[in-house]
């Protein structure tokens, strides 16, 4: 992809992010941070490319460490978000 196409995607995604995030209810701002944390670990893609290549051992090991770090974030981030979201409950209407 040429630079301008990539830039267009980036700028449009910033706008999408702007509108989507303003729609997030303040009560869920902590889960928002946790889940953005998890998804920003999509940087694992770069780490995988580096560790997949056999020809440069130094880059491979650096990449593998990055895979470990990003995995901590992915699993930890999604799990902690799920755990938090499971706690948000509506008022019980049993007595009404």
């Amino acid at each position: 992809m040429d630079f301008i196409s990539i830039l267009s995607i980036f700028v449009l995604a910033c706008f999408v992010g702007y509108y989507v995030v303003w729609a997030v209810t303040p009560a869920l701002h902590t889960p928002l941070m946790a889940v953005t944390n998890a998804i920003s670990s999509v940087i694992i893609v770069g780490a995988l490319i580096a560790s997949a290549a056999a020809e440069a051992p130094a880059a491979k090991w650096v990449g593998l460490i990055a895979v470990v770090l990003a995995s901590i974030n992915i699993f930890g981030g999604f799990a902690v978000t799920a755990r938090m979201l499971a706690m948000y409950k509506k008022k019980e209407r049993a007595d009404a």
């Binding site: 999408v16 992010g17 953005t36 999509v42």
Partner: peptide
Amino acid sequence: AMIVTGALVGSSG
């Protein structure tokens, strides 16, 4: 995927 996510997380923060 990385660009979209980066933009989302960046604007979110």
